[in-house]
Design a protein around this nucleic acid. Structure first.
Lengths: 232, 232
DNA sequence: AAGAACCTTGACGACTCCTTGACGTTGCGC
DNA sequence: GCGCAACGTCAAGGAGTCGTCAAGGTTCTT
């Protein structure tokens, strides 16, 4: 649960506070919205690893908000519905709208935490310690080794973590915010240390080779993928 | 559920048969094992998309089998525990051993099916559609890439956002107010910056090609679509 | 205790992007 | 036809971001 960034959308103040406190105690950072209009703003401005979503909300309901996430924003982060509605049709609707899990109130907080972890682990491809591969680049999480074209690369621990994030997300673009939060949580360095790490990472991964795999999209983020042709 | 290959590990004959029949009726192919030694053989010889796993089995239990899958075989396919044990510790153990979901007997078969689908869709990264398409124009939000006729276009972040909105709404016309609000919220620039962005967008999207896709409807808004008939 | 590895910080130039404003063009109402 | 408003075109300026790299300090190893 470390350095997870979670958005909680829930109109019951009491329950919301309980969940927030528990999750933060587990090491997550939690933003809270009591309705979907605030949630819509938050979701456009920040990166979240997972969303906890109540169904019955004032105004727009949770189902509709989930659909908006999937269709309009094309966000594929895990969504867990949390609701008192335990009818089969309600659950089916939740999954049908793109939800990943559906937990009925009242629930035990540790179970919620376990479901969150399970979804994050799958999303981050941490179910097994299999090696990640992008083009001729291989990362072995168990051995803490990175090879390119069979050749072992020497990376600092932080550079390794960054590369691992970029590779598991490949070919998606990873925002600076997401990287920083996953690396440091709430303790992001004052100055722009990420730039230095990226510089060193590039030096190790791309410099000794012909084609670059690590791309910068100015103002957007970074990605690792083969042959991103530069347009004129 | 089409063409899914599922392994069911369950020692209760009656329940097993019910689940098999339901899942096959939904279009899946189901192999069945009443104990983990058979399951171990099957899993090594065949590919499965997902495993439905009872906890209490003769001999080795489900937890242990799941652990074996993850650690020894390094298989990352989704695993759903199906069991009558509803205690919190049991559930936590299930997730802790690498399970993706945990459903308590008795359960409704459609709910099981929904959970299976949700896990498959996440595993395959099919949670969201990955590209928007209008005519020969394709936009991939995750990669932050736009192609026309297969050719990668270079767009500024704002131009990209505008195009994304227009393509999402296509072939509808998007008003200037809607665009400005979605781009900047309440902080719309003093001068008419949108005009510049549209100009640059057009330069990238339409200029290098024969036919224009980006249309202006004076006093109304903008749209992106092929061959818009001239209004009378 | 000495040394190595590592992370952070700061400086600098280069680059990108957004805004702004100027000017020409189109189109519609009168 | 005229005038106004909306639109297309384009360049310049400034804010912010990025690549580069070295120095200092902390932690870890030996």
């Amino acid at each position: 649960m470390e350095n997870l960034s979670i958005l909680l959308v829930e109109d019951h103040r009491q329950l919301a506070q309980t969940v927030v406190e528990f999750m933060e105690q587990e090491g997550a950072t939690v933003d809270y919205a009591g309705n979907t209009s605030l949630a819509r703003e938050l979701v456009q401005e920040h990166h979240y690893d997972l969303i906890l979503l109540d169904v019955m909300l004032p105004g727009e309901d949770g189902y509709s908000f989930c659909r908006y996430l999937r269709k309009d924003l094309a966000l594929d982060l895990p969504v867990i519905f949390m609701t008192a509605r335990d009818q089969l049709e309600d659950k089916l609707e939740g999954f049908d709208r793109g939800g990943d899990d559906y937990i009925v109130k009242p629930f035990a907080l540790p179970e919620l935490a376990a479901r969150v972890s399970a979804l994050i682990r799958r999303q981050r491809r941490e179910v097994t310690a299999n090696t990640l591969q992008v083009a001729d680049l291989e990362l072995d999480p168990a051995r803490q080794e990175v090879r390119r074209n069979g050749q072992l690369l020497k990376l600092s621990p932080t550079a390794f973590r960054i590369l691992r994030i970029l590779m598991r997300e490949s070919p998606k673009v990873v925002s600076r915010e997401q990287l920083e939060h996953e690396l440091w949580g709430d303790l992001v360095p004052d100055s722009d240390a990420l730039r230095s790490h990226l510089y060193n990472l590039r030096k190790a991964v791309d410099k000794p080779f012909d084609n670059a795999l690590l791309n910068t999209l100015p103002g957007v983020g970074f990605s690792i993928q083969e042959d991103r042709p530069v347009a004129g």
